[in-house]
Computed example of a mutant assay.
Amino acid sequence: MSVSPLSRVPNPATEITGLILAGGRGRRMGGRDKGLERLGGLALVEHVRARLAGRVGEVLVSANRHLESYRRLGDRVVSDAESGFQGPLMGIYSGLRAATTPWVLVVPCDTPALPADLVVRMAAGIDDCRIAVAHDGERLHPVVMLLERALADDLRAALAEGERKVGRWLERHAWASVDFSDCPAAFGNLNTVQDKQRLERRLNEESRP
């Protein structure tokens, strides 16, 4: 694959849009809207947004229900280009279409402890690739990635072919792995009510004098 002309360290404030994926069905949480689940008095999406706001040019929230609630929390809310809760790739594609910057940093709504320096580290790790993906030292996190907005057409083609797996779409491209092995716990995600309860207990323990 030819190297993109954008392949350099992007300026987060002017060239990166943050995209929070909150458009899923929340099946493992009994159909509840995960992004709006409360943790420590805040919705999960608010915890995630705090890692992006002021560090990127704009924050978008990918959501397919409770849109008014999300609009009060994000700069803009973007719903999937096609209905039917088709998964994170559709949310990413819809976010790429809505973004106005050349780069988009994608994060899920259920990772409330993301590193505070996530944006600058992802930007610095893009290397000569069009996509950078976070790696915690043990596993890859495909939905924590920085990618060029210009990849929207390729992603649209993949979706039209029936692709719905983020990892398989990544295999179509050269991508860089960004090392976060110094903070693997930051990428823990909340898939179930039990996950949320465990994190709440941990946060309460850490806040005690």
Results as ranks from 00 to 15, higher is better:
residue 134 A to F: 02
residue 117 D to Y: 02
residue 158 A to L: 14
residue 156 R to A: 15
residue 171 E to R: 14
residue 180 F to D: 02
residue 101 T to W: 00
residue 127 D to G: 14
residue 173 H to M: 05
residue 89 L to E: 07
residue 168 R to C: 00
residue 127 D to A: 15
residue 96 L to N: 08
residue 165 K to F: 07
residue 115 P to L: 06
residue 169 W to G: 01
residue 175 W to N: 00
residue 128 D to P: 01
residue 152 A to G: 06
residue 102 P to K: 11
residue 150 A to G: 12
residue 112 P to E: 11
residue 149 R to I: 03
residue 118 L to A: 08
residue 156 R to Q: 13
residue 118 L to M: 12
residue 100 T to G: 13
residue 122 M to G: 04
residue 127 D to P: 07
residue 164 R to F: 00
residue 161 E to R: 15
residue 105 L to M: 06
residue 146 L to C: 12
residue 133 V to Y: 03
residue 131 I to L: 13
residue 161 E to F: 07
residue 132 A to E: 03
residue 162 G to Y: 10
residue 155 L to K: 02
residue 173 H to L: 06
residue 90 M to T: 13
residue 115 P to W: 00
residue 163 E to S: 06
residue 168 R to V: 04
residue 113 A to T: 15
residue 92 I to L: 05
residue 119 V to K: 13
residue 113 A to H: 10
residue 180 F to H: 04
residue 117 D to F: 01
residue 138 E to F: 09
residue 135 H to G: 07
residue 93 Y to H: 14
residue 176 A to H: 04
residue 115 P to T: 08
residue 152 A to L: 06
residue 153 D to L: 11
residue 133 V to K: 06
residue 178 V to D: 00
residue 100 T to D: 10
residue 164 R to Y: 01
residue 109 C to W: 09
residue 152 A to N: 04
residue 99 A to C: 05
residue 141 H to T: 10
residue 147 L to I: 10
residue 89 L to H: 01
residue 142 P to W: 01
residue 151 L to E: 07
residue 138 E to W: 12
residue 152 A to H: 08
residue 168 R to A: 08
residue 135 H to I: 03
residue 117 D to M: 09
residue 184 P to Y: 11
residue 89 L to I: 08
residue 143 V to M: 13
residue 101 T to K: 11
residue 102 P to C: 04
residue 119 V to I: 11
residue 165 K to Y: 07
residue 174 A to L: 13
residue 123 A to D: 12
residue 142 P to T: 05
residue 107 V to P: 11
residue 137 G to I: 10
residue 136 D to M: 09
residue 98 A to K: 03
residue 93 Y to T: 07
residue 134 A to E: 03
residue 163 E to A: 10
residue 174 A to G: 15
residue 145 M to E: 10
residue 173 H to W: 14
residue 148 E to H: 12
residue 183 C to I: 14
residue 93 Y to G: 00
residue 101 T to D: 04
residue 183 C to G: 01
residue 130 R to K: 06
residue 149 R to L: 06
residue 104 V to G: 06
residue 166 V to T: 09
residue 97 R to N: 08
residue 148 E to G: 12
